[in-house]
Write a protein that binds this DNA or RNA. Structure first.
Ligand SMILES: Nc1nc2c(ncn2[C@H]2C[C@H](O)[C@@H](COP(=O)(O)OP(=O)(O)OP(=O)(O)O)O2)c(=O)[nH]1
Ligand SMILES: [Mg+2]
Ligand SMILES: [Mg+2]
Ligand SMILES: [Zn+2]
Length: 572
DNA sequence: GCCGTTTTCGGCCCGACTGTTTTCAGTCG
């Protein structure tokens, strides 16, 4: 959920950091602002509310000065220091540092020597050969910067998690097929399960790094390549980093390359305080002896910590938790609670869906085709819904095992908050998912009221894709989500983590909040075709990032337990 | 600017690759 205040302040802190770095300020001061900005990005609550509740100061990285900055922001919507810095530089200057290969030092030099204050001005100066007069700007640097500008202009966004997972499978497959490759694994933000991924990070154990680098360099445009590390641009756009380490360093290297940055800094700081040193090759004691390196578990253990799940390695605060959550496993899910068939806008028959679900070992599958108002999606009329119910009953009688299809519906929450099917129809269904699919532009108050009305109706099980966001396409609609969670909890309605890679809605942070508010969570692939069943693990990753355990998941319930939510239905 | 098994000053993670460097700074992971 996009907390607008968090986003604005994140940006302000990032810009303060950049301005200060340009000015040559103490680098640790710069890092303090950068860390605070990342902290805000990962925050599952509104920073305004957190500040008002007085709890902000307990967030790592927020000391006296930064809390004061937040205070200014809450009162005025701005931060004085930010305004001052902004007015003392050309408006576009920070974009210089968006050019790959151009950092604060070089940007400052360009500004000081040639008054270059924008990417356009830089490009012009580079082409006219003006910058070669500056110390440190040779021919190669000029070419690299021109390339960097071209790349920046491509405007490539972060890729969706699902897309990078597929690329990783492809590239790992090719690497593992090489005879000299012992192991190849994905790390970085992909392994942490972030909803979008900036680049793909691959770790390889090999007897011949040289050969692996040579092979890898052939897969894309080479950005840089040395004996242990090569970076390429896949299809000229998306960066892939490959790192090689000796076999005995596998655990240390996975730990390093998985990150996050803040997690690594916190862990290495901890090692240091224990008179040790941690890097990607291992954990070393005061005498320089390696005391752990082969597995992540050993490294965390030697530092007095439990193994921390990659999905939870973000701010570094996770090192201080008294207890890590029980990690959710895919195998703990007994079914998929949001799917579409040929009856509405899916591509497969009920038989095909049931077969696929059984192949995956599910105990149940909820068929949740669209309701009658969703004309574009071939939504079901009441007559067709009832006919589908008979078909599902017939199929259920035929299964040899204890597998069952749940007769469900994805019922539209109409503009006024009423549902698209009457109560007596919902009462007959096994499973009811409700969702907003139309009339997105409403005031937050009206949207809150609408959703709360919708989920307050009897027989509703799940609020699907609650915020309506589509990653890199559109932000979700605004509403008072705390209120929605509260009403959902009161009515026993679960919040969905929609597993579709473009949605992942609720997102990790919102799901954590919803769970903290006492809501159950439901994982649904929203599959419109069989391959989309593969989306379920993406949702599991988000649930893990939210610290959600199996006990909070509707999907963890057996069919019999789910059934107790509908005591009025006859036994089957 | 933050923060405390080094406690209120003095550190703050650590290494790879590049370019123009004659010994290392800048940028990035
Ligand atoms: N110790 C240390 N590790 C770092 C640093 N920067 C990056 N790493 C590690 C942790 C990162 O997760 C990992 C990969 O770096 P990336 O820049 O690709 O970041 P990450 O994959 O986390 O996010 P992304 O989605 O690619 O932006 O390398 C650093 O400054 N210090
Ligand atoms: Mg990465
Ligand atoms: Mg990377
Ligand atoms: Zn759906």
């Amino acid at each position: 959920m996009a907390f607008e205040d968090n986003q604005q302040l994140t940006r302000i802190f990032e810009e303060i950091a950049d301005f200060l770095e340009l000015q040559g300020e103490n680098i640790f001061k710069v890092k303090a602002y950068q860390k605070a900005a990342r902290g805000l990005e990962g925050l599952e609550r509104s920073v305004t509310e957190l500040y008002r509740s007085g709890a902000l100061a307990s967030m790592p990285g927020f000391g006296k000065a930064l809390v004061e900055k937040v205070s200014q922001f809450v009162d005025t919507g701005e931060v004085e220091l930010h305004q001052e810095l902004k007015s003392s530089f050309p408006p576009e200057i920070l974009h210089l540092m968006d050019v790959p290969g151009l950092g604060a030092k070089k940007a400052a030099l360009l500004y000081k020597e040639l008054a270059i204050g924008s990417v356009d001005a830089l490009e012009k100066a580079l082409r006219e050969g003006l910058v070669t007069d500056i110390k440190g700007f040779g021919k190669k640097t000029v070419d690299k910067l021109l390339e960097g500008i071209a790349l920046l202009r491509q405007g490539e966004q972060r890729w969706l998690l699902g897309r990078v997972s597929q690329l990783a499978e492809d590239l790992l497959g090719r690497l593992r097929a090489l005879p000299m490759v012992e192991r190849a694994e994905a790390a970085g933000s992909l392994r942490r399960g972030k909803e979008t991924v900036g680049d793909l990070d691959l770790l390889v154990i090999t007897s011949s790094a040289e050969e692996v680098m040579k092979f890898f360099s052939g897969l894309g445009e080479v950005i840089g390549s040395g004996p242990t590390k090569t970076s390429i641009r896949w299809e000229g756009t998306f960066q892939v980093d490959l790192r090689c380490v000796p076999a005995e360093s596998f655990g240390a290297a996975m730990q390093y390359f998985t990150g996050s940055l803040d997690h690594n800094v916190a862990l290495r700081g901890r090692a240091k305080r224990m008179s040790c040193e941690l890097n990607e090759y291992g954990l070393f004691d005061a005498l320089g002896q390696c005391i752990a390196s082969e597995t992540e578990e050993e490294i965390y253990a030697k530092l007095g910590l439990p193994w921390i799940a990659p999905e939870l390695r973000e701010s570094g605060a996770e090192l201080e938790w008294e207890k890590q959550p029980q990690r959710l496993e895919l195998s703990q899910l007994r079914g998929n609670l949001h799917t579409h068939s040929l009856w509405s806008d899916g591509t497969d028959t009920l038989e095909q869906l049931a077969e696929e679900a059984q192949r995956r070992g599910y105990q149940y599958l909820a068929i949740t085709d669209h309701s009658r108002s969703m004309v574009v999606a071939n939504g079901l009329s009441i007559d067709r819904l009832l006919a589908q119910g008979e078909e599902i009953a017939r199929l259920n009688r035929g299964f040899q095992n204890d597998f069952r299809l749940l007769w469900g519906s994805e019922v539209d929450i109409l503009g006024d908050g009423s549902l698209d099917f009457p109560e007596e129809i919902l009462a007959r269904l096994d499973f009811v998912v409700v969702a907003v699919h139309s009339q997105f532009s409403m005031s937050p108050e009206a949207m809150t009221e609408r959703i709360c009305r919708g989920i307050s109706r009897p027989h509703v099980d799940v609020l699907a894709h609650p915020t309506g966001r589509k990653i890199n396409r559109r932000v979700g609609y605004q509403a008072d989500w705390e209120k929605v969670y509260q009403v959902a909890r009161e009515h026993g309605v679960a919040l969905e983590i929609n597993c579709s890679p473009r949605r992942l809605d609720l997102n990790d942070k919102a799901a954590r909040r919803a769970r903290d508010c006492g809501c159950m969570i439901s994982l649904g692939t929203d599959a419109h075709s069989l391959p989309e069943f593969e989306y379920l693990p993406l949702g599991v990753l988000q649930a893990r990032r939210a610290g959600i355990e199996a006990t909070s998941l509707l999907n963890h319930l057996s069919w019999e337990q789910l059934r107790t939510r509908r005591p009025h239905l006859a036994d089957v």
